[in-house]
Computed example of a mutant assay.
Amino acid sequence: MQLGLVALAMIFLSSMGHSGALKLSKARRQRRVSTEGPPSCPKGCERCSEYNGCIKCKPKLFIFLERNDIRQIGVCLASCPMGYFGMRNPEGNNRCTQCKIDNCEACFNRHFCTKCKEGLYSHSGRCSVSCPAGLRPVNETMECVDQRPAECELGEWSPWSSCMKKNKTCGFKKGSQSRVRLPLLQTHSPDTSPASVPSQTCAPQTEKMKCIVTKTPCVRDY
C-alpha cells in the first residue's frame, strides 16, 4: 500500500514538473516574439518591408529598384544611376525611371538622351555613330552641331523652357519645350582693325522636344 502511494506521488510530482517546464518554455517564446519589432528601414527610407526593401523614400529622394536574383529591392538615392532619370511625383515617392533610348547613358526624360555611350554622338536627344547631313561633329562634347563658320562659337545650352503650347502654359496636356545656344561675343586685340576681323554670321542653335504636364485650366482675364 505504501509503495502504491509513493508511486502515485512521484507520478504527480513528475507531471507538475513537466507542466511547469512547458509553461516556462512558452513564456520564453512569448518574450522572444514580443521583443522582435518591424524591420529597421535603411537611411533615407520612410517605409520598408523585410522582403522588398524600401517601399517609400523620404521627400526629395528617389526610389530605385535593384535586382536581387528574382526579387527587386527598393533603395533610396539622392540622384538616379546612369541609364535612369528622376521622375518627381507631386504626391511623393519620386522614382528612378529607365531611359528608353538606345545606347544612352544619361537622359533628361524617357525619350531624350543627354549623354550617349562612348564613341557615339548626340543630337536632338538621340545617339548615332555619325552626324546627320548638314551637321558637323564636336569631339570635345560628342555633339552634332550646325555647319557654321570657323569663327562662330556658341555658348552652353540654356535651361529647358517651360512646357508650352501656342505660347500658353495652361489648357493642354501635351506640349513642347525648347533650349537654345547663343553665339559668344567675338574678342580681338585693340590693335586689330575691325576690317580684319571676320564678320560674325552666327545664329542661335535651338532644340525642341515634346513634354507632358498635368492639364490645368487657363484663368481668364476680365
Rank of each mutant, 00 (worst) to 15 (best):
D102H: 13
R29Q: 11
G134M: 13
D191M: 01
K26W: 07
K58F: 08
I55C: 08
S25W: 13
T141F: 03
I212V: 11
G4H: 09
S14H: 11
K166F: 09
L3E: 15
R95P: 00
K173L: 02
P190H: 12
T206V: 07
K210R: 08
M87P: 06
N109F: 06
E140A: 15
N103Q: 12
T97R: 14
C41M: 11
G74N: 04
P137A: 00
M1H: 11
M10P: 03
S122L: 09
S189N: 11
S130R: 14
T192Q: 12
A150C: 14
C202S: 09
K23Y: 02
K58R: 09
I212D: 07
R136Y: 06
Q205N: 12
P217H: 01
V75L: 08
L61A: 00
K168W: 03
S79I: 04
P190V: 10
L135S: 02
R220A: 06
K173R: 04
C170E: 06
E143C: 02
C99V: 02
A195F: 13
C163H: 03
D221N: 06
C144E: 07
I73D: 10
S176K: 04
T114W: 13
V219E: 12
E153S: 10
K117N: 12
Y84T: 04
P42W: 11
Y222M: 10
R181D: 01
K215H: 04
A106D: 07
F172Q: 00
K115R: 14
G20P: 00
G155P: 04
G134T: 13
